[in-house]
């Protein structure tokens, strides 16, 4: 059930990605994306120093020194390159990554993201989250609509610590796609059969309805 919702999100984000783009996938739902690319060919960047990340190797061909940012064994695509951490983050901060797909704890009505720390809890990990928020050319957030405690993740104002002043471009949940423009949030597509009034009820931030015509979806995705 939960897995299906996560897959819905991953599949919808694939529609936003174009062959040849350089993409960094965060932990969580974004890691499902490579399974739903069909014939799209992305160049995946891994923050620990690889451009051209390939799928999980078969057992027996694991190299502990060829791993993803989630520290899982991976392979390399033809044309891959390896570099050190400072070069990797120069690539990220310097605007050389087309799209970052990130998980989030909260996103506010302007698209500001909180994805590294929970208030009151021990804050001992940030990893590359803030570098990606600051530097990727386009930021797509992949998140379930509500937290496991049923709290909305799209909120009027962040109550969790911000990951940076840079805003997300798009948020995809199992129910809807929202776009952020000039400080406002727009509903651009519904992904479930939840009626609009119920969607508004479970969304903690006000949004304007800008639903697309079904036959215009391809154009509008550009």
């Amino acid at each position: 059930m939960n897995e299906n919702r996560r897959i819905t999100i991953a599949k919808r984000i694939v529609q936003e990605l174009e062959s040849g783009q350089t993409v960094n996938l965060g932990v969580g739902i974004p890691t499902l994306i490579p399974d739903y690319l069909d014939d799209k060919q992305l160049v995946l960047q891994s923050e620990n120093g690889l451009l051209g990340m390939g799928p999980t190797p078969p057992p027996g061909q694991v190299n502990m020194d060829l791993i993803s940012a989630s520290k899982d064994p991976i392979t390399m695509e033809t044309g891959a390159s390896l570099f050190d951490s400072s070069a990797s983050f120069a690539m990220i901060r310097g605007g050389h990554i087309d799209v970052a797909v990130l998980g989030a704890l909260q996103v506010d009505r302007t698209g500001e993201i909180a994805n590294w720390a929970v208030p009151g809890a021990t804050i001992l990990g940030v990893g590359g989250a803030m570098d990606l928020v600051a530097g990727a050319n386009k930021i797509i957030v992949a998140t379930l609509h509500s937290s496991k405690h049923g709290e909305p993740k799209l909120v009027e104002e962040l109550t969790y610590p911000t990951s940076g002043i840079r805003k997300a471009d798009l948020v995809v949940t199992e129910h809807a796609v929202f776009r952020f423009e000039e400080g406002s949030m727009y509903l651009v597509e519904q992904l479930s059969d939840l009626p609009l009034d119920e969607l508004q009820e479970i969304t903690g931030a006000p949004f304007q309805v800008g639903l697309r015509e079904p036959d215009k979806q391809e154009e509008a995705a550009e």
Binding site: S88, F89, R93, V126, D131, G135, R166
Partner: peptide
Amino acid sequence: PQGTLAEAVRCGGAGIGGFYTKT
């Protein structure tokens, strides 16, 4: 942040006192 850590060490070894980052 991970990129700041990597760059701070790079600068340390390169004779650079520090740097400005958006991160």
